[in-house]
Design a protein around this nucleic acid. Structure first.
Lengths: 181, 181
DNA sequence: ACAGCCATGTAACTCGTTACATGATTAC
DNA sequence: GTAATCATGTAACGAGTTACATGGCTGT
């Protein structure tokens, strides 16, 4: 039986473990809203093809009303997801940080360009922080011990703290660059 | 002319902008040692095929002594790199965080498993912090204003701060989970 | 002599993206 | 009626990985 799925497949199963019957379209929205902060926002087409695969493995059940198709976890799907949680190694995060990469090469351009780079990144951080704050706010009320969104709330708080810290570092770096004038 | 290269190609050009003639093998070592913290550690085979492409574009020059081949930046390569620095948008970082993804789904397993997950991540963070510290230490002495490793040192400090903060958040989350006992 | 590292590549494959294409439903 | 959103897919492609294959050099 097809064992090892790509992690993104488990991520989608994970989203289904919260809100059960979801269409591919809805799944993509959930991913864009939450999953993108610490995993990826898969392309629409990938969501559909991944759902196809999961359906072929009997890990999701399709509820088709003709025009739209909703998917829910099967027993097998939930079992696969929890087994993956228990038995697989997490591995270290992979960060693709275009701002850090460009800062590394800062000597190639004038300091003004680097200042612009960092300013833009701070703006982007503010933007993302605000978006994640909204998500976090929507969990208030069901984020206590034993409640369904306890863990998602933790992850959201983690993300918010990360964004705040990132911003603080950038400010430090900015001052360090300012000294070179 | 083949314009848009994958960012990883620019990352390799960037490595060459510090230590000029490097073999594919050495390039891979540099990437594993430094680039991996904020970009990627490309596979050996990708380093070679990317060098082939860059060579085809006249962005690197090959110094072959038969058995080994070293590559250095051409004028065109350096120009392409600085143009990329000046003209392309940086974009927001992409984080693939398997620990956060698993924490999100914490409700599926028993708290003990989550504790283990977080412990292991803290260990990994310590390990990576130590590795990056070594890199940072090797830059001391040429990390002042105007010196060649000024910017790489900034990026390394950024990374170290990030790891330290990550560890602090995990400790907080651990306590939060401990309360549910 | 043998292990381990240095050094270079090819082939097959998967993940994931972009571009394209279609059409129904909803809000104004 | 018409624009935006909901909804689902296909096709072509590119980036990047793993597995495989080869062989020279270095230290013990």
């Amino acid at each position: 039986m097809g064992q090892d799925l790509p992690i993104t497949a488990y991520a989608l199963l994970g989203l289904l473990s919260f809100d059960d019957p979801l269409t591919g379209y809805e799944l993509k929205q959930r991913a864009d809203r939450t999953l993108r902060f610490y995993w990826v926002a898969p392309a629409m087409s990938q969501v559909y093809s991944e759902l196809d695969r999961l359906h072929g493995e009997d890990m999701v059940k399709a509820h088709g009303d003709g025009r739209t198709t909703s998917y829910s976890l099967t027993r097998k799907g939930r079992a696969a997801l929890t087994r993956w949680m228990r038995e697989s190694e997490a591995g270290f995060p992979v960060l693709k940080h275009p701002v850090a990469l460009r800062l590394l090469l800062g000597a190639l351009v004038d300091p003004e360009a680097i200042r612009g780079l960092l300013s833009q990144h701070v703006e982007a951080l503010d933007h993302e922080h605000a978006a994640l704050s909204e998500v976090r706010a929507s969990l208030v009320g069901s984020d206590g011990p034993g409640e369904p969104f306890r863990y998602p709330a933790m992850v959201a708080d983690w993300g918010l703290s990360y964004f705040a810290h990132e911003k603080a570092i950038i400010e430090e770096l900015r001052q360090r660059i300012e000294q070179d004038r």
